[in-house]
Design a protein around this nucleic acid. Structure first.
Lengths: 260, 260
DNA sequence: TACAGTCGATTGTTGAACAAGCAGCGTTGA
DNA sequence: TCAACGCTGCTTGTTCAACAATCGACTGTA
């Protein structure tokens, strides 16, 4: 498991605001307020999300309420709440009276997603390069992700490599120190995963990027920010092309006519 | 009514893809596929959203399911689905077992929101300035919004002025031609509205920006893109300061301790 | 005054029910 | 033969009533 929290949920946590009142009982100050148990609807959303990522629910797959209800052992209403959440994340396509399906990524989607990736990621690297205080990259954490990806790659755990790659980029964007950007970017990355699914062989897709992430990390560590930016730019161009090709190369699974 | 569609819903429409098959019955080609009726859950979300914007549901207000259910004449489950949607839009704060409340905007929120506004809006103006094909601003539409805002201002319809102002900026960002940015930005603007509510007197807030939008429009029309960019930048700085001041000036309505 | 126990109100979730819409299928009629 | 029509079953949209879990305020006690 890559996500330590288990709970894949993308619940944003705006406004941290730990309770810091002048309590008579101090010495308990350091205790991290334990967060509320996820509700059934949230866990249902988590499970569905995870299944999409793992490729068990391929794009285009219909998700009937009744079937999900039975499989997850929750009521249909709960399933519907989960659907609302996931639709908001662009993972599911909703059509009234027709049900939800796992979303397709169109070529336009990919173009759009990468437009945003460029905007966020390149800005992040620029900001860091400019040495803006408060916008430092956590180089060690990023390095750790690269190392982990390398290990996963040699072990052939390509899905994990994909996940670590996404985390790598999330870390970069994290330098912008914006909760909202983090959230938007995280959603973008879930959509990118939808694109990953177009590849029959994950190794083919992820292998090149393990070493590219390594060299990108090296450039950042060495403070060669301009080079890092340039590398990241071509990196994104290449990745976009790759996914676009994969998507267009499988017209057999074209989205239905109703593709909103 | 400012929004012609009536339906305030922010349902994104990725991938237009009109059905364009070789139908024997042509001559019906031009008919715009009429979109599905909004479900009760969507309309409930619309109504609640609208009530927040109109200030009838002030930030901090608790929205009990039972009360909403009775008021809107829909079942509690339907209300909950609407809540899920609105929580995803950051309009409502959800706390398990404690219910939903209209969200507060903290100072950090405002800072974050304006960070994103700068990113999107300034980039849009720059792109347009650079004359990138396919990224032209719809100058007429923007001008129309300014004129409408001026009329609304002289008539004292300040809430409408606020709405038109938001639309003005949405148009600018529209030059980026990115459905995802459009959606993110639209959500940002709904949050900005939450900030507007901190002002007791809408006139005080909106009045200065009517003329500033006018001059901004003029700069764009004249092709003085560099000046437009600069004006927009200070514009955003000022607006941020204004809202921050308003928010911090009302600590009497501070958010509760549980402010996630 | 501080604490623990109690209780009412609200939320979380369920299951069953029914209306409404969609999709597939056979029938009809040229 | 084939397109248009109407029927039918399945799925979704929504409601309702019920119950468990949780919260927060109130209470009485030491």
């Amino acid at each position: 498991m890559v996500n330590p929290s288990g709970h894949t949920g993308s619940a944003p946590s705006y406004g941290s605001g730990r309770h810091e009142g002048a309590d008579p009982h101090d010495g308990l100050a350091g205790l991290p307020a334990l967060e509320p148990l996820p509700t059934a609807a949230e866990r249902a959303a988590d499970v569905i999300r995870e299944n999409i990522f793992e490729g068990r629910f391929a794009p285009g797959t219909a998700l009937p309420e009744a079937a999900l209800s039975k499989a997850l052992q929750v009521s249909r209403n709960t399933v519907r709440e989960a659907f609302r959440t996931l639709t908001g994340e662009h993972l599911l396509a909703y059509e009234a009276h027709r049900g939800v399906t796992v979303r397709w990524l169109t070529a336009d989607d990919v173009t759009d997603i990468y437009r945003l990736r460029r905007m966020f990621e390149l800005t992040a690297v620029e900001l860091t390069a400019a040495g803006r205080p408060g916008h430092e990259l956590d180089v060690d954490a990023i390095g750790g992700l690269v190392t982990a990806a390398e290990r996963a790659a040699t072990a052939g755990r390509w899905k994990e490599v994909g996940t670590l790659n996404l985390r790598f980029h999330e870390r970069i964007v994290g330098a912008l120190r914006s909760p909202r950007i983090d959230e938007v970017f995280r959603r973008l990355m879930t959509e990118v995963r939808l694109g990953f699914l177009a590849f029959p062989d994950p190794a083919e897709l992820h292998a090149p990027y393990v070493s590219r992430n390594r060299s990108l990390h090296a450039l950042i560590v060495d403070g060669r920010s301009e080079d890092a930016r340039a590398e990241l730019a071509t990196y994104l161009d290449d990745a976009e092309r790759l996914i676009l090709a994969a998507i267009q190369g499988r017209p057999d699974q074209e989205p239905k006519e109703h593709d909103r």
